Computed example of a mutant assay.
Amino acid sequence: MDRRLRRNQWKSTESCGWLSVPAMGSNSASGRVVLLVLANGHSVHVPGVGETRAEALMTWREGHIQAAIRQANMPTALPAPQYKAIEGQFAAEERTLKDKRAQVEQSRQNSRIDLVRRQTEAERQLNDRHSAAVQAGEKALQRANQRLAALRAEHRTAVQEGQRLAREPIAYRKISCGRFLRTVLIGR
């Protein structure tokens, strides 16, 4: 199709259009054929393009033409006052964001200081409890050692008494029944 269009001196998209004419053959369902009309006035039949497709192509073409016109009318540079206004807006936004960041940093620093203070207090309390537990353990150990020393002294005395009694022959001792009971029951 491109070759056929170039051969017929079709140069710009503005110079074309579609024309619906009665069909000569029996291939068309509606009895009509759509022709592409070129700038030089020649008509070209494009196989596979009917009225619906021609309408869609023209809508597509018009959309692209309008987009090109809009783009051509867009400014490529801003006037100085507008440029300064936009720069001012960005500078204000940057200051706002820097202030927010400083607030967040300050809040984070305050939180960190508070956490360190609470951790230090907790460590001090743990150290105090540990010291109290160590002192209580030392006192309990000292009492247990004193009790052990007393029991050892009592044991030593009992052993010595037992050895002394073992050295005295029982047969030579004159013991009455009352003295025996007193010795057994009271220990004298």
Rank of each mutant, 00 (worst) to 15 (best):
T13G: 07
A39V: 00
G31D: 02
A80W: 06
A72K: 13
L35S: 01
N27K: 14
Q9I: 03
T96E: 15
E94A: 14
L57D: 00
L38V: 09
H64T: 03
A56Q: 07
R70S: 14
N40E: 13
R95M: 06
P75G: 04
S43T: 14
E93H: 10
G31P: 05
T59I: 04
Q66A: 15
A92G: 03
H42C: 04
T52L: 10
A92K: 07
T52M: 06
R101Y: 11
A72L: 08
W10V: 13
Q82Y: 04
E55K: 11
E62Y: 04
I69G: 02
A67Y: 03
T76Y: 00
A102G: 02
N27I: 06
A23R: 07
A54R: 02
F90D: 01
M24H: 09
L5C: 12
G25D: 15
G63C: 07
L57W: 05
S26L: 04
V104A: 14
T76W: 01
R7Q: 09
Q103Y: 02
V104M: 10
L78Y: 09
C16Y: 10
E94W: 03
K100L: 09
G41T: 04
L38G: 12
D99Q: 15
S28K: 02
L78T: 03
K98L: 12
Q106E: 12
V46P: 06
L5M: 15
A72W: 04
A92W: 00
S12E: 08
R53F: 03
G50T: 06
N8T: 08
A85L: 09
V46A: 07
S30V: 04
E55Y: 04
G25H: 09
E94S: 13
P79L: 08
A77I: 08
Q9F: 06
Q66D: 13
F90Q: 11
V104W: 05
P47H: 06
V46R: 04
A77L: 11
I65Q: 13
G17T: 10
A77M: 10
A68Q: 12
L38N: 09
S28A: 11
E94H: 07
K84D: 09
N27Y: 02
G88F: 03
H42M: 07
S107D: 13
A85N: 06
P81G: 04
A102R: 11
V34L: 04
M74K: 09
K11Q: 11
R53L: 15
V46L: 15
S107C: 07
T76C: 09
R70F: 03
R95N: 03
P22R: 11
S28H: 02
V33R: 14
N27T: 12
L57K: 01
R6L: 10
R32P: 00
R61Y: 07
R6E: 05
R7M: 05
A92P: 00
V33Y: 07
S43L: 10
G41D: 01
G88N: 12
L97M: 09
